[in-house]
């Protein structure tokens, strides 16, 4: 990573010896990382390949028929229930990543440009809630939005509503609010990192050349921070599409997402191949959506310049 890590081969060394040295460097480096690498191969790559294989097989009661078939994918893509769940999951994850990025950008900007000496304190304050249990944060939204919850009782206490509203909990909006809150820190960090890399002299140059603060922000800072916006959007979008806890706790019937259907196939329904096909389909579709998001943000970035 750093130049120092490369070492400094002595001058006057022959090319052959230097090659031998480099080679031994490679061997040493590879040997050192291999336990971790093998671990990831066995518990990440192999499992994903196994899921992929299962998605082409069929469940026969307790056995699995290993004949190749695309039937699971036909079901995953055409059965209305799975199609709807997939669409809803995509819609929710897209909305959540949009809101987290929009809400997070000013914070990242504030810390980077106005944070002064307290930058790391601000970052720390913002990341701390993220380190608390995800389950507990979702649970606290259930407490807030519930029929007998904080918001309803609070609003009734203030005389704004007469009876508890049922519209707060158990729908996709509740899922979106909860997820936006849960992933906030994840969006701030990449944007902050890319804002830190923005060359401040460029912003000054734009101001000197007559751009107002808004214009110089739109034409210099914002386009230069696009990589951070992209990674923030992706880092929220991809994991949230497969969220299991939030829809289960605050989603109700209208907020069920694809992960709940996947879980059912591995649990009660006990149809592993279909569950595998649903997982693969979800990953493929969210990757497409992520790709499209990257292209759109890049296009906007070019337009701004």
């Amino acid at each position: 990573m750093t130049a120092a890590a490369e070492g400094t081969p002595a001058f006057g060394m022959t090319r052959a010896r230097r090659n031998a040295l480099l080679q031994s460097e490679s061997v040493q480096g590879f040997a050192l990382i291999s336990p971790t690498f093998v671990y990831a191969l066995i518990l990440l790559v192999l499992p994903i390949l196994v899921v992929l294989a299962h998605s082409f097989w069929t469940q026969h009661y307790l056995d699995i028929d290993h004949t190749f078939t695309l039937e699971n994918y036909r079901i995953a893509l055409t059965e209305p229930i799975y199609r709807d769940l997939l669409w809803r999951s995509l819609y929710i994850s897209l909305t959540v990543s949009f809101f987290t990025v929009i809400l997070a950008y000013p914070i990242a900007y504030f810390i980077s440009f106005h944070g002064g000496r307290h930058k790391s304190l601000w970052l720390f304050l913002i990341t701390i809630p993220f380190w608390t249990s995800y389950l507990l944060r979702v649970m606290s939204w259930k407490v807030i939005l519930g029929y007998n919850g904080v918001l309803n009782s609070g609003l009734m206490g203030l005389g704004i509503i007469d009876e508890p509203s049922t519209a707060l909990l158990y729908n996709s909006s509740a899922v979106i609010i909860t997820l936006t809150h849960a992933w906030a820190a994840f969006a701030i960090l990449p944007i902050f990192v890319s804002l830190e890399k923005v060359d401040r002299t460029l912003v000054e140059a734009a101001t000197d050349l007559g751009d107002g603060p808004l214009r110089s922000f739109l034409r210099v800072t914002l386009p230069l921070s696009a990589p951070g916006v992209i990674s923030a959007a992706l880092i929220v979008m991809i994991p949230t599409v497969g969220d299991y806890v939030t829809p289960k706790l605050v989603g109700g019937k209208d907020g069920v997402m694809i992960a709940n259907a996947i879980q059912a196939q591995f649990g009660k329904a006990s149809n592993w191949p279909l569950g595998a096909a649903l997982s693969v389909t979800t990953m493929l579709v969210v990757s497409l959506m992520a790709g499209a998001t990257v292209l759109i943000i890049r296009a906007l970035q070019r337009l701004a310049r």
Partner: peptide
Amino acid sequence: PLVLPEIILAISMLLV
């Protein structure tokens, strides 16, 4: 694993 949905990690490890 940082950027993959946990459910995918969970069910794939479960299968293996």
